Computed example of a mutant assay.
Amino acid sequence: MIYVFVCKDKPDHLQVRLDNRPAHVAYLNELNAAGTLKFAGPFLDDAGKPCGSLVAVEAADIAAAKSLAENDPYAKAGLFEQVDIRPWNWVFNNPSA
């Protein structure tokens, strides 16, 4: 099952994001190499600066998805104000379809 993480950054936490980006990218690269990561990228504010994240992963269940989200270096650094984890059905343009 694919789970999507919709993450909203805490206000005024851009520097936390920037400081932890290398570890976050390394974590996503590990998930990608394992075939777990489906897609990911930042949400942008009106000024074009990152203000959140969208991450889609393959996980056995919601508990496994939560574990992946909690182990993201951004989450460990306290970047996110809110993280919504939802199961998602990839209908259009799914490369595995």
Score class of each variant (00 low, 15 high):
M1G: 05
Y3V: 09
Y3D: 15
Y3R: 03
V4Q: 08
F5G: 06
V6A: 10
C7T: 04
C7A: 03
K8Q: 11
D9V: 00
D9R: 00
D9E: 01
D9G: 01
D12I: 00
Q15H: 10
V16Y: 09
V16D: 05
R17I: 14
R17T: 09
L18K: 06
D19A: 01
D19P: 03
D19W: 00
N20M: 01
N20C: 03
A23T: 00
A23K: 04
V25W: 10
A26D: 11
A26Y: 15
Y27R: 03
Y27H: 06
N29G: 14
N29W: 06
N29D: 12
L31A: 13
N32W: 05
A33F: 08
T36C: 11
L37M: 08
L37H: 11
K38T: 14
K38C: 09
P42D: 09
F43K: 03
D45E: 10
G48D: 14
K49M: 05
P50V: 06
C51V: 04
G52K: 02
G52Q: 04
S53I: 01
L54V: 03
L54I: 09
L54E: 11
V55Q: 13
V55K: 14
A56P: 00
A56N: 02
V57Y: 13
A63W: 11
A65Q: 09
A65K: 15
K66H: 11
K66S: 09
K66F: 14
L68N: 12
L68H: 10
L68T: 05
A69K: 08
A69E: 14
E70S: 07
E70K: 07
E70G: 12
D72F: 08
D72I: 00
P73A: 06
P73T: 06
A75V: 02
A75C: 07
K76G: 09
K76T: 02
K76D: 02
A77H: 10
A77E: 04
G78Y: 13
G78C: 15
G78V: 04
L79N: 01
F80Q: 00
E81H: 03
Q82S: 06
V83I: 11
V83Y: 11
D84G: 12
I85S: 02
R86W: 09
R86F: 15
P87H: 11
P87D: 08
P87W: 10
N89V: 10
N89D: 05
W90G: 01
V91T: 08
V91A: 14
F92R: 03
F92E: 01
N93G: 02
N94Q: 07
P95Q: 09
P95C: 08
A97E: 11
